[in-house]
Amino acid sequence: MSLSSRMIIVLTTVGLISGGFLAGVAQLTKERISLNIQKEIEEAIVEVIPGTTQNKKLYQEEDFTIYSGQDESGSTTGYAVQATGIGFQDKITLMFGIDDSLKRITRITIIDQKETPGLGAKITDWNAFLQFWEDRDASGQLTLRKPPAGSLEDLLPSEINTITGATISSQKVLEIVNLSLEKLKKIISEGKIAVEGHDVN
């Protein structure tokens, strides 16, 4: 056998065996991986809309998903919006909860981020950042408070505290939420999803 045909046969065989093997492994782990992702989203929904036990996906487009939350009796507890946008280093995926009158952001959680460890990554920290997102006024645009206020009570209802040393990461999270709020209101006012009796303004 000539050398070149031997080279081709060996490389093809190695590739085929590896490929077949990997297809098997992918098949075995596929279900569990998608379960993990689903579980992560469900936990986030429960976290951002207090009192939620079940959820329903209402609307989905690229990097933007709306869920509704229900309590045990089946009445709506609010909506959760999952959105992805550009952060300081890489994309940030977050989820925020909003009450069913679309006037108040209940809470926010960060699902995925690759901000600078120790600085921008503090957007996932409750004490440094997330606690200042409780009960925010969602009727207009939210703004950043810089330098940050000492406690939640010192902030205006439409203000978010900036993380010291990570203004851009804080700003990016705020931008994603503001954009998503606009999108959410537009989608509901255009009647793209069925939401009963809401005055969106």
Partner: peptide, 20 residues
Amino acid sequence: ASYIVVIASFVTIADQFLKA
């Protein structure tokens, strides 16, 4: 080239396993 294919296969397995 053959080594890389072998290595890449095991890396993918490790990655999938960790994800799962």
